[in-house]
Design a protein around this nucleic acid. Structure first.
Lengths: 110, 110
DNA sequence: CTATCCTATCGTTAAATGACGATGGAATCG
DNA sequence: CGATTCCATCGTCATTTAACGATAGGATAG
């Protein structure tokens, strides 16, 4: 069990090229706003570290209520940084590698 | 005139090494929050593009009031991304290269 | 079917954001 | 000195965030 709900992440820290810097200001602003909270950064780090999915475990890792964590997850999900998959009675979260990469590119091109 | 208030920026897109990932969550969150607004991103881009300083010119570039721009500049200044130097009757703003680099490093290490 | 567990959503409250106009202070120009 | 210019700050208002407890819904377990 504990089958990952996401394909293994590809590690390509290079290849930060060809960026749509067009009207990407709103995109970058939305992504940056999602990062603009320590709790959400910790959640992201957790999801990256256990390069698979988690959910209620996140609540155990932080001194915050379940509803608060759920709200942060929704924030991250709405911006596309995180995906949630229903896995039986629980929900499996994981990082969306493409969006995270896009964020890194946009910031690197500042 | 128009003497730049900041030394010329060094372009070192590489060298993203040795990061204090320790308790940098709050630091990254603060920096990301500053980026979490399209207006502030545009201001940053302006300051980077004219790799020197500006001030009232920023107001002319955006459809926002002077007080609003001033508030955004204060936000960017409080987080360290921007510096302001008094230059006679006007104020000269420029990006703080070290902090911007730190931001890029922290995001790249996500 | 019923009970239990996990998560999302609702309702609430306090604080922070974002925008504006108006005011005030500092420095230059005349 | 006096007028003007440039910018920061103040006060206000609407919206958004962040946190909580409580509630509801969906799926498994018994």
């Amino acid at each position: 069990m504990e089958s990952p709900c996401c394909p293994p992440q590809e590690c390509t820290p290079g290849a930060l090229l060809a960026t749509p810097l067009d009207g990407a200001e709103d995109t970058l602003a939305a992504l940056a706003k999602a990062l603009g909270n320590p709790v959400r950064i910790r959640i992201l780090r957790l999801l990256v570290a256990r390069n698979a999915c988690i959910c209620g475990e996140i609540v155990e890792e932080m001194p915050l209520s379940q509803s608060t964590i759920s709200a942060h997850l929704k924030f991250l999900k709405d911006v596309g940084l995180v995906q949630g998959t229903i896995d039986g009675p629980r929900v499996c979260y994981c990082v969306n590698p493409a969006v995270l990469k896009q964020l890194k590119i946009l910031v690197a091109c500042l």
